[in-house]
Each structure stands twice: as structure tokens, then as C-alpha cells.
Design a protein around this nucleic acid. Structure first.
Lengths: 338, 338
DNA sequence: ATATGATATGGAATCGTTTCCATTCTCGGG
DNA sequence: CCCGAGAATGGAAACGATTCCATATCATAT
């Protein structure tokens, strides 16, 4: 039924070792013998078993990609970038959704270890180090994206959240806004904290006093943005601009503002973060801070491959991307009131 | 370094066969022995190798999911549904993006065969049967989603595109529209053809003559929708409504209409298909035909598991979901002109 | 003519499991 | 007291590759 290397060897009239050498291009093989082996393999429709290959001590040719939820529009692009680089290198990617649930994450990591993956990429997962430690103990390299893990042995790919947040807020300040609120992401994430910090720094450098009431924490979802914006719009004086922790929050905030009878950007300017696909398609277009997500995914996979191949040893490297402000239609110059 | 079943056996003072029986819950094992083995495994942090398990003739515990592009907002939900069901069953999913390129698809399928996946799910791929045939020849079950493959041995999960398209057009007709155009998807896909056919049927049953000029083919992208809509709006008399082949097309069409100075839904009503996340978030909300994508993904994986476990033999089954019309803000009653 | 090093090839061990088969215990019934 | 069936266990043969090591054939330099 299944055709094995032994079948190919028999058909070509050679030993299995020779077949292996031909298929892997290793060792000496006479040109004529190579032809015969290749022909036999093709005729039999031979497909080498990566399971067996992996077992003999080599690599499995697979990596794991652990993300919270592929349904969240921020992750498909990263996933695609990882996949692109993996595919080019002959690698295959296991996709795991954790919903940010530590239990599910542990379950997924356990499965990945059983599958003997050659490496794992974590994106935007909780800061819990347990899973990562277990993998490193197995000698499986790890790359972390969009989160900072103060771990000596993992490579990190992220965007400069501070700079991005500062750029977003400077843009608003430059448009004449003074009362700027921040619809923040999740308080326990470094990403959320950094963006909030960038917001504060931009205010400070413009000489605007920081009002704690202007920062409302939630999580990185549309619903959270909607809820939090309702609170922020109730402040007096009402903010004239909102810097959101990400694009989904921004979209939720815009909807909340409109439902409250406010026009965007006439009555309220809004800036997001990430530049998800939707940001360019909604009307008015969402002004936001762009992360090169696909490129970052590709970079993460590239770094992982270097670790796997032993081309990079030593302490964890860090690759920081500079985000870019994309001005669209949700921000407008604030006309000084009478 | 790596801890194997032999290490666990030694530690527990038993044979490897006994350890295997304990871990798999097969055969006879004394309760006290079981405890000892389990303890030893835990102390050593033993993780069984699925590679070895798969090799001995069992299953690899993996399946392949082949889609055109995870970046297209239609696929994440399906992917998530597949993942959900897979994870519950202890399965892991290989994600492959083909960009609808037969060459890439062949490459991906080759990799999946090398990995000895237990099954493969194709979503919205080209109708080329080659890859599928190869898998079936290997004895690897296949499930196809969102496409019809006239193949005796594959299970199919799809939505009733005819009924969905009819519902969308009846809705427009019910609102008083008579001049309705169709911004169609890709001409060579069954999905595109069926939705066009449903459109024609709805017109016919309403006694509206079919005008070939009112159907413009493209592909299932935003850009295509934009382009195609420009053409349709140039017709005389100008259509008062457009039924789009999917939501991305609809979104592109809306943008084109607005750029042409037309208001949606006042001057032009638009209906989409799929109900991607964006459809509910744009303003005005997109009227569309909803597919239960996550549920469909889950169903595809469930059917695949049944095949893998031999719980379902015989000819290919077919699971057809009934779509649901979701009325939002892009459709409006046509006021009869003077 | 012989030593030498490169070229070619195959046998067999190995990777970490599952599972078949053989063996040893343990009991309850005759 | 013996016997047979179930309970409990371990040894060893697969599974399908890679790779080490041994062996054989050359051509060329000495």
C-alpha cells in the first residue's frame, strides 16, 4: 500500500542508503545511479515520511504559531507573514488559538511539544513564562511578538509602541486639541502600558497637564472601545479627541460617539493603532499608527529559523520596528470655540 | 537530554510495554503500577513523541487546512471553527495559504503528505482535482468547503448559495427596486455561478427581464468590486440596486458609488454576501446574507474526524447550510420617481 | 607494482513508540 | 491439590527514515 524507501531501493536495484543519499543530496552517488533512483521514486510516487525523518534525530520541519484568536483582525497579517517565510523554507505551521486562556495555552504547548516542533512563535500572549520555559528546557527555540518577555533566551519582534503613541498624540496636539482622552487597552499588557506612556509623554512635552480621569482602561476589543468611550464622553469638559489603544477600540469609540449624537471628526477626533485592513475601508477612514504586521511575522519566522539552524546563538535578540502615522479622515483641526 | 519511554520505564521499575499501556489506557495494568508509572512520568517531565507514535502505523494527530489567504476576512472564522473542533479532539492544524496558485497548492499538499496528516480540509480552492486525488490515493480523507467537487469520495460543507442570492434579490425587489445589477465574483467558481443563478431566478419570478449588461464579473475582492461598480453605474438606465457576490465586493462597490457622488442607500442600495465582521461595523451597516462560517468550519472538521476514525464510510456526504438575510443600512425602499 | 585518496555502495544500528506474543501470577471451582 | 482463565507484565519486532562504518572500485602518484 504505502511505498517506502525500501520499495524505491528495490525498484532501482540499489541499497536504501543510496536512495537516501540521492534524495538528500548528501555523499557520493554516481550520476547514472541517481537517475535510476529518481526514476524509481517518481514511478512509485514515493513520498518520504517526515515522521521517520524527524525521529532519527533530525528536525520535524514544523513550527508552532500561538496567537489569541485568528478572528481578531490584527492576527491574520502576522500569521500570513510567518507562513510566507515558513513555506519558503520548506516548513509547515501549526496554528493555535488560545483566547488568552492560560489553560488552553498550556494545552496547545503540550501538543506542540508532542509534535516535536522545531520552534514556536508566540504572539500577544499573556506574560506568563511557564509555557516558554518548558519549551526552552526542551531545547526548542522561542520567538515572542508584540509582547516583552524579560527572558534572556528568547528573540523578540515588536513595534516601538512608545514612539507610535507619541506620534499619534502629537498629531492630535498639532491639530489644536488640548483635551485628549486615551481609550486604553488591557492594563496588564506591556503593549497597553507603553501606549499609555507614550500618550502621557506627548502631553507632557506639549505642556498639557495629565488628567487621570482621561485614561480609561479596558481591553483590545470593539466592545471595550464602545463602553469606555461612553464614559470618556461624560467627562467635563468633554474631550475633543481620543487616542485609542488599537483600531478595534477606535472603531468602537467612533460608534459610541455617533450613537451619542457626536460627529467624527467634526465633534471628536479619533486615532487608532495597528492599521488593520478595516481602517482603510471604513468611512471616514481611520487615522491610525501602522505596524508592518506581515513584515514582522516574516521577520519572526526568519529569526526562529536562524535559531533552529544554529546560525544564531547567544542571548535573545530584539527587533524593533518603527511605526508610521497614517492620517485619514477621523482627525480634524479643532476650531477654537467662541 | 530527551527523556524517553525507556527512561520512564526504568524509573518506575517496569517494562516499556507497561508504560505504554498506562499512558494509552489499554490492556491490563495493576492500579498500584499505574500510579508508579504516572509518578515517574511526571517527575521526569516525560512528553511522548507523536512522531514515533505516528510512525508505528497509528495516526499523526494532525490535519491540514488549505485556504487561499488568511488575510481575506472570510477565512479566519472558518479557520477558527476548524481549530476549535480539532483542538477538542486533541488534533493540531497545519495552516496553508495558496493564494489560489495551483503551484503553491501542490507544494503545500506535498508537504502535508510528507507530514503524514490524517486528513485535509480545502476551503474555496480552485476546482482542480489533482491534489485531492493524490490525497485520496494515499488513503487520506478530504473535506471540501465552499466549493463543489464532483468527486464521489469527498465530504462537502457549503451554504445554499442559490437560496441566499434569491433571498438577497427578493429583499431588493420587495423594496421596490426593478433595475438591479449584479457585481459578480469569479466566473470560474461554482460559488460565483450559483449566486448569479439565484439572482436571475429571483428576477424571473418577479417578472423582471434579465439584462446581461447588468451582470459584471470580476473576482471576490474589494478592488474588483470598486472597478466593476464603476462600469455598472455607467449603464442607462442606471441601476438603483446592486447585489454583490460577497461582502468585499459590496464594500468596494459602495466606495465606488460614493466616489461617483452617489449616496448609499439613498441613491443606491447594496447587498453583500458572507456577513464578515466588517459588515456590522461599517457605517451604514451592510445588508448581507450571513453564512455561519465558524459553525461550518467546525462541521467540516467533525466530518473529517468521522472519516479518520472510520465512523463514516461510503460515498461523500454533503452538508448544506441555509444562509440568513441580515438587513442593515445599505438597502432602502426605492421612492418612485416623478 | 603498490600505496593512496577519492568515489560509490550497502548492511545494520538507531530514533521512540505500539503491539504481538510469551510468560508468570493469582484465584475460584472441581 | 490441581487446573484453567483472567490479570499483569516484559521482551522484541515492527514502523520508515538517516547515518556510521565497512567494503569495493578506480585513477593516479610514487
Amino acid at each position: 500500500m504505502k511505498v517506502t524507501i525500501r520499495d524505491v531501493a528495490r525498484r532501482a536495484g540499489v541499497g536504501v542508503a543510496t536512495v537516501s543519499r540521492v534524495l538528500n543530496g548528501s555523499g557520493y552517488v554516481k550520476a547514472e545511479t541517481r537517475e535510476r533512483v529518481l526514476a524509481a521514486a517518481a514511478e512509485l510516487g514515493y513520498v518520504p515520511s517526515q515522521l521517520a525523518r524527524g525521529l532519527v534525530g533530525g528536525l520535524s520541519g514544523t513550527v508552532g504559531l500561538v496567537i489569541p484568536d485568528i478572528t481578531n483582525p490584527f492576527f491574520p497579517l502576522i500569521t500570513r507573514g510567518v507562513e510566507d517565510a515558513a513555506s519558503e523554507a520548506g516548513y509547515t505551521v501549526f496554528l493555535c488559538n488560545t483566547d488568552n486562556d492560560p489553560g488552553l495555552e498550556a494545552h496547545d504547548v503540550q501538543k506542540l511539544r508532542e509534535r516535536r516542533v522545531d520552534g514556536v512563535i508566540f504572539v500577544g500572549t499573556t506574560e506568563r513564562r511557564e509555557s516558554v520555559d518548558r519549551l526552552l528546557a526542551d531545547g526548542i527555540p522561542v520567538v515572542v511578538m508584540d509582547r516583552q518577555l524579560n527572558h534572556a533566551d528568547v528573540d523578540t519582534v515588536l513595534v516601538d509602541n512608545l514612539a507610535g503613541a507619541r506620534a499619534a498624540c502629537r498629531h492630535l496636539i498639532g491639530l489644536g486639541h488640548r483635551r485628549i482622552a486615551h481609550a486604553a487597552g488591557h492594563r496588564s499588557t506591556r503593549t497597553g502600558q507603553d501606549r499609555c506612556q507614550g500618550y502621557r509623554e506627548a502631553l507632557e512635552e506639549a505642556g498639557i497637564a495629565f488628567d487621570p480621569a482621561c485614561v480609561a482602561w479596558g481591553d483590545f476589543t470593539y466592545e471595550s472601545g464602545y463602553r469606555v468611550c461612553q464614559v470618556l464622553l461624560g467627562l467635563t469638559p468633554r474631550p475633543t479627541a481620543i487616542f485609542a489603544g488599537n483600531d478595534l477600540i477606535a472603531l468602537g469609540a467612533i460608534r459610541a460617539a455617533e450613537d451619542a449624537g457626536l460627529a467624527v471628526p467634526d465633534d471628536l477626533s479619533v486615532v487608532g493603532f495597528d492599521d488593520i485592513q478595516m481602517a482603510a475601508l471604513v468611512r471616514p477612514g481611520l487615522t491610525t499608527v501602522r505596524q508592518p504586521a506581515r513584515e514582522m511575522g516574516r521577520m519572526a519566522m526568519t529569526m526562529l529559523l536562524q535559531r533552529i539552524r544554529g546560525e544564531a546563538a547567544g542571548p535573545g535578540r530584539r527587533h524593533v520596528y518603527q511605526p508610521e502615522l497614517i492620517v485619514r479622515g477621523t482627525t480634524r483641526r479643532r476650531e477654537p470655540h467662541a
